[in-house]
Amino acid sequence: MNIFRFLGDLSHLTSILILIHKIQTSRSCRGISYKTQLLYVIVFVSRYLDLVWTYVSLYNSLMKLFFISSSSYILYLIKIRFRPTLDPSIDTFSLPYLIIPAAILSLIFNYADEKAWLSEVLWSFSIYLESVAILPQLFLLQRTGEAETITTHYLFALGAYRALYIPNWIYRYATESFVDPIAIISGLIQTALYADFFYIYFTKVIRGQKFELPA
């Protein structure tokens, strides 16, 4: 564990707490993509179910439990509790375009060996799917052209999580010769998808302005 990874995980955890806070205080899931949240549940379940048969550390297991349960809870809030506030007409990104390529890639590029096939394929699937899971949310943002400030804080914390993993990988390569090409390449793509968002967040939201996309 190094500082970058720890801050990344903390940022990830914070993003989820911000999102739950936003939905509960506004009693609305306006501006939130159900499809992106559904993808995160798929990502977390396919990657973190290994907590049943793999033990890394107490920290690792607790975080996995947190991510599976909190993302499921968010899905419940959106789909059941505050369902009337959901507007499916703007959340139109097609999920098969993301899930099918991620599934195919995971069958081709994975770390499977004779001992572990399914768990390794599921792991790489979750990594590929995570790297693009934010797209329905960014697409929704693009369509509405603006966002509540709290939603932009959520997106910033979520993007910062994977961005912080990049110095972590550099650090791990330098100190333990650890290289995970699947995670690194997907992580770079995932972070790059936030480039536009980060730009507007830093130039507008941080200065107290409303998040609005240029017309």
Binding site: D9, D50, T54, N60, Y111, N168, F178, D180, A183
Partner: peptide, 10 residues
């Protein structure tokens, strides 16, 4: 050298 199969990252 640690291998990537350990998946110790979140």
């Amino acid at each position: 050298e640690k291998n990537h199969h350990s998946h110790d990252e979140l």
